[in-house]
Amino acid sequence: MVTSKLRVLILTALTAAICVVGSTIKVPGFITTAALDSAPAFLSVVYLSPIYSGFAALLGHFATALTSGFPLGIFHILIAAEMFAIVTVFNILHKKGFSIVKWLFLVLTNGLISPIPFYFIISPQFYFASLPSLLIATIINVVVVILIMPVLNKILRQWKVLNL
């Protein structure tokens, strides 16, 4: 029999693996490494605790950076930390039942706020050049999650996976 802790670790690893698959689906852009690596981490709020969802997102971003050739170098550590924080808070909002606020938070933080450090670190031009593809990738990830989340929630309840 699989223990509860082992089940959580397995689900986290599987989520991170699916994030890696999503990292290979790039959203074209001038400077960014935007991809569909976030959707699995966003979906994991249904079956993982906030920290584990955040960790899956962090790993997903590193996979995107790796498959893009690390164009921002060490700054990908900052982006991965931001992804960890965004998905962790998104998970908390989801678990507390903030059904509309969680989606607004996700689009605003992931699509507009998270690249703000690069406004100062690199340049305002870099920030504004990265926004279109990052915002489009965020919206695509969110739409995928909005469509799949109710189905996934129902399936996991039927399989009793949500009783962690």
Score class of each variant (00 low, 15 high):
Asn110Trp: 03
Gly29Asn: 06
Thr3Ala: 04
Phe30Tyr: 09
Ala137Lys: 07
Ser130His: 01
Arg157Pro: 03
Trp103Phe: 01
Met1Pro: 12
Leu131Phe: 04
Ser130Asp: 03
His76Lys: 05
Asn91Asp: 14
Ile25Asn: 07
Thr138Asp: 08
Phe42Arg: 00
Ser68Thr: 12
Val21Glu: 01
Ala81Phe: 11
Ala39Ser: 15
Ala85Met: 13
Phe105Pro: 04
Leu104Phe: 13
Met149Gly: 01
Pro71Phe: 01
Gly60His: 12
Thr109Pro: 05
Ala137Phe: 04
Met83Val: 05
Asp37Tyr: 01
Gly60Pro: 03
Leu66Gln: 09
Phe118Val: 08
Ala41Met: 07
Gly22Glu: 01
Phe84Cys: 11
Asn110Met: 10
Leu58Arg: 01
Arg7Cys: 02
Val20Glu: 00
Val107Met: 05
Leu134Met: 15
Ser130Gln: 06
Leu66Phe: 12
Gly69Asn: 05
Phe70Thr: 03
His94Gln: 05
Pro117Leu: 03
Val21Leu: 15
Ser49Glu: 13
Leu59Asn: 00
Ile79Cys: 03
Val27Pro: 00
Ile100Leu: 13
Ala34Thr: 09
Leu14Gln: 04
Lys102Asn: 06
Ile74Asn: 00
Pro124Gln: 13
Phe70Leu: 07
Lys5His: 10
Phe98Asn: 12
Val20Leu: 15
Ala56Pro: 00
Phe70Ala: 07
Val27Tyr: 00
Leu66Tyr: 12
Thr138Gly: 07
His61Pro: 03
Leu78Pro: 00
Val161Glu: 08
Asn163Thr: 12
Leu106His: 06
Ile51Glu: 11
Ile18Leu: 15
Phe75Thr: 12
Pro117Cys: 04
Val27Gln: 07
Gly60Tyr: 09
Leu112Asp: 01
Phe98Ser: 11
Ser4Pro: 01
Thr24Ala: 14
Thr109Gly: 06
Val21Arg: 02
Ile74His: 02
Lys154Cys: 00
Ala56Lys: 08
Leu134Arg: 02
Thr88Arg: 13
Leu156Ser: 06
Leu48Pro: 09
Asp37Ser: 10
Phe75Tyr: 14
Ala16Gly: 14
Val161Gly: 05
Leu14Val: 15
Val161Thr: 10
Ile51Pro: 04
Leu162Cys: 10
Val89His: 09
Met83Phe: 10
Gly22Lys: 09
Val107Trp: 04
Thr12Gly: 13
Lys96Val: 10
Ser53Met: 08
Phe62Thr: 03
Phe90Trp: 06
Thr12Ser: 15
Leu36Trp: 07
Gln125Lys: 14
Leu108Ala: 15
Tyr52Val: 07
Ile146Gln: 00
His76Val: 04
Ala39Trp: 11
Ser99Cys: 00
Ile136Phe: 02
Cys19Phe: 05
Ile31Arg: 10
Ile136Asn: 03
Lys102Met: 14
